[in-house]
């Protein structure tokens, strides 16, 4: 199977190049990550991140034939040859397919992704009704792979100011949580032309999320609550 892989070592190379690989796959190689591991055994200078190899850790996100996704859950059979692999767009490249995710995580941390509740914690746990718990479905499953934020044009233009789809999904996860008491502060923090309102509902984020989540819907919900609060 033929591959064209982005190669760049900022310390040595003046500019990135696309390197061609032709690998003989084994019948057990089903996912793109299997092929990448095989390529790496041929050419160990190729750098990439991976860990869980089952779509749980979010470390092998990359741009696959023009679309962001996780290599470990992308079927080789579905890919058109030569398979073009590039690092996630819009973030600084550390080496080959490895990008510097600091900006992405900085935005994630900026929404205070933890439960805020001033009441003393009960002996066992803070209880929630099944209906309240249901609100968190489609929000808590995010694995922070950054496929969405790095496919969002608004995040490309203002990664330092726009929270991005992953961060906003997480923000809504805590706004929607019946146990969280900081809703107003959270809304205040997002009532900003950059932090939330750079989103123009382009929906690239929904298109790429490997976990099938819908950040655009979460962003819409945040706006809905803001309107309720205002009018």
């Amino acid at each position: 199977m033929k591959f064209r892989i982005y190669r760049y070592d900022p310390e040595k190379d003046t500019k990135p190049t696309m390197k061609e690989y032709d690998v003989a796959l084994e019948p057990t190689d089903r996912m793109l990550l299997d092929a990448l591991v095989r390529i790496k055994s041929m050419d160990d200078s190729l750098s990439l991140r991976r860990s869980c190899r089952e779509g749980v850790c979010g470390s092998d996100a990359m741009n696959i034939n023009g679309k962001n996704g996780l290599a470990c859950i992308t079927k080789l059979a579905d890919l058109k040859e030569p398979v073009e692999l590039r690092p996630l767009p819009g973030l600084p490249v550390i080496r080959d397919l490895i990008v510097d995710m600091s900006q992405f995580f900085k935005q994630y941390h900026s929404i205070k992704p933890y439960l805020q509740n001033a009441e003393p914690a009960p002996e066992k746990e803070r209880l929630q009704s099944p209906t309240d718990r249901l609100e968190l479905d489609g929000l808590y499953e995010c694995i922070l792979c950054a496929c969405c934020s790095t496919s969002c044009p608004s995040f490309w233009w203002n990664p330092d100011k726009f929270v991005g789809p992953a961060g906003l999904l997480a923000a809504y996860r805590f706004i929607a949580d019946s146990r969280d008491q900081a809703t107003n502060d959270r809304l205040d923090d997002l009532e900003d032309p950059y932090r939330l309102f750079r989103c123009h509902s382009i929906m690239n984020c929904v298109d790429v999320c490997p976990k099938g989540l819908n950040p655009t819907r979460a962003i819409g919900k945040i706006k809905e609550i803001m309107i309720k609060r205002m009018v």
């Binding site: 100011k161 009532e191 900003d192 032309p193 932090r195 939330l196 309102f197 706006k223």
Partner: peptide
């Protein structure tokens, strides 16, 4: 590099 944000408008314009 600190980036000041929090202009407290956005919803109204939207």
């Amino acid at each position: 590099k600190r980036i000041p944000v929090g202009a407290h408008y956005g919803l109204r314009d939207w």
